[in-house]
Nucleic acid binder design. Structure first.
Length: 425
RNA sequence: GUGCCUGUAGCUCAAUGGCAGAGUCCCUGACUGUGGAUCAGGUUGUUGUGGGUUCGACCCCCAUCAGGCACCCCA
């Protein structure tokens, strides 16, 4: 065991059991995305480093990206996020795409991070975006998709919520406090950090950044004001649309949500697990109206969000919301009684497969208890036995593993009998 | 990059500085053509690694590696 080369730090081996969970998550994401009419797409996993240099944020590009130089001397990165690739794909075909575009994707991403709960270096992320519309209703649809997902995986409004804010609104409020545009980014960072710092330390930091005591007081009042959204026409429209979409029970205004990525220009939102064993966002996103122009396309407004598989996986696991998934894709095992009867078992298995069943035929004539135990461990539901007695009379023994009952049937009746057992689920 | 905690059987974990153990899993049998239950028996270790203290170290000390948690950032 000592000689085994371990997996690369931060990666996960997906054994069949875990792969089944990932596939289930992917299927759920697909169902929710498609229910709103979104189309699946995929981008390259390798991208030029330059694609991210402009807009993703210093931390993400300089410290968290896997970068290497390829044999042609190009600086290549394993993609740390998808949005810049999406922006490029849209920009390249802007003249010929049917807009607005509703696109979604689910695939691997890499970030060189310190390992801790909810964070790995290779993770799988759902991205979903609505491009070509700038309206509160478009933002509301995106939030409603997120709410629809939470509902689909069994996270009720008591267990999870989506916190919403608007950067344009916050900037207007900053302006009302005489916070200069030059200080905007710093103050946003300040807001982003508030939950994580001691109140006294946070206030000291605020004054250090350059806020006057009066501005700090105003900022604290703003961040505490859960009704402040009523002063924003956009947010009022957004919440009205969410109510019409039936997603409002998941959604709350929260002026503390600003998000780190530089390219967000308007609505921003994050979903959290309320019970909170993981103090990280389940998903996060917002409006980014300048990104297409910034990667060299025609200006095109857009809104979207991303969800990593790690945090949601932990939460669903802890809340027992991951369904029991079949271990074996085949629910039927054909046993092999002896070397002489093995061809008969192979033929029986093949016959059932031709009839559309998934069938596992034991690969060697070992003793029956072992084969039954294997069927049990694999979660199979029906075991077929073709032994000397059956062979002599043209019969097959059909055993129902869930009930423990079995019957000896004519071979021609086996298919129907197996189907009946499987249908009973 | 900073701080704290943890490394013992495949897995989960015990063991006042004094013979390294239990549960689980696995294997065998009770049951030679039947799994999941029960019972009996059995296998499983360089105690992360390297030094030191000691008559004696899983235990104490130092170093190192790995993992976890928090900070930073973020899905």
């Amino acid at each position: 065991m000592k000689n085994i080369i371990p997996p690369v730090k931060g990666t996960r081996d997906f054994y069949p059991e875990q792969m089944a969970v990932r596939t289930w998550l992917y299927a759920t994401v697909r169902r929710v995305s498609e229910s709103f009419g979104y189309q699946e797409y995929e981008a390259p996993i390798l991208e030029a480093l330059a694609l991210y240099a402009a807009k993703s944020g210093e931390e993400l590009v300089k410290k968290q990206s896997y970068v290497f130089t390829d044999r042609g001397g190009e600086e290549i990165t394993l993609r740390p996020e998808l949005t810049p690739s999406l922006a490029r794909m849209i920009a390249q075909k802007q003249g010929e795409l049917a807009l607005p575009a509703r696109w979604w994707s689910f695939g691997p991403f890499w970030r060189y991070e310190k390992m801790q709960k909810g964070r790995s270096r290779e993770f799988f992320q759902w991205n979903i975006d609505l491009l070509g519309v700038n309206s509160a209703e478009a933002d509301a649809e995106m939030v409603a998709v997120a709410a629809s997902f939470l509902k689909a995986v069994g996270l009720t409004p008591e267990k999870a919520c989506i916190l919403v804010n608007d950067r344009r609104f916050m900037e207007a409020e900053f302006e009302a406090l005489n916070i200069t545009p030059a200080m905007k980014t710093e103050v946003s960072g300040l807001v982003d950090r508030r939950e994580k710092m001691e109140p006294a330390a946070w206030e000291a930091y605020a004054l250090e950044v350059g806020l006057s005591p009066a501005q700090l007081e105003g900022l604290k009042n703003l961040l505490a004001d859960k009704e402040a959204w009523r002063r924003s026409a956009d947010l009022v429209r957004l919440f009205a649309a969410l109510k019409a979409l039936g997603a409002d029970e998941y959604v709350r205004f929260d002026p503390n949500i600003v998000r780190g990525l530089l390219y967000y220009t308007g609505t921003v939102f994050e979903a959290f697990d309320v019970s909170g064993s993981v103090r990280r966002a389940i998903l996060g996103g917002g409006r980014y109206d300048n990104l297409l122009k910034d990667v060299g396309g025609e200006p095109l407004p857009a809104v979207g969000f991303a969800m990593g598989d790690v945090v949601i996986g932990i939460i669903l696991q802890e809340l027992g919301l991951i369904p029991t998934l079949a271990t074996s894709p085949a629910s039927v095992l054909v046993t092999v009684f002896s070397a002489e009867l093995q061809p008969g078992s192979l033929a029986l298995a093949a016959e059932l497969r031709r009839a559309g069943l998934n069938v596992n035929c034991y690969p060697e004539p070992v003793k029956l208890p072992r084969q039954f135990k294997f069927a049990d461990r694999m979660g199979m539901r029906v075991v077929l036995v073709l032994g000397p007695d059956e062979a002599a009379n043209g019969n097959i023994t059909v055993k129902n593993l869930s009930s423990g009952t079995q019957e000896v049937l004519k071979r021609t009746a086996v298919l129907e009998a197996v189907k009946r057992i499987l249908e009973k689920s």
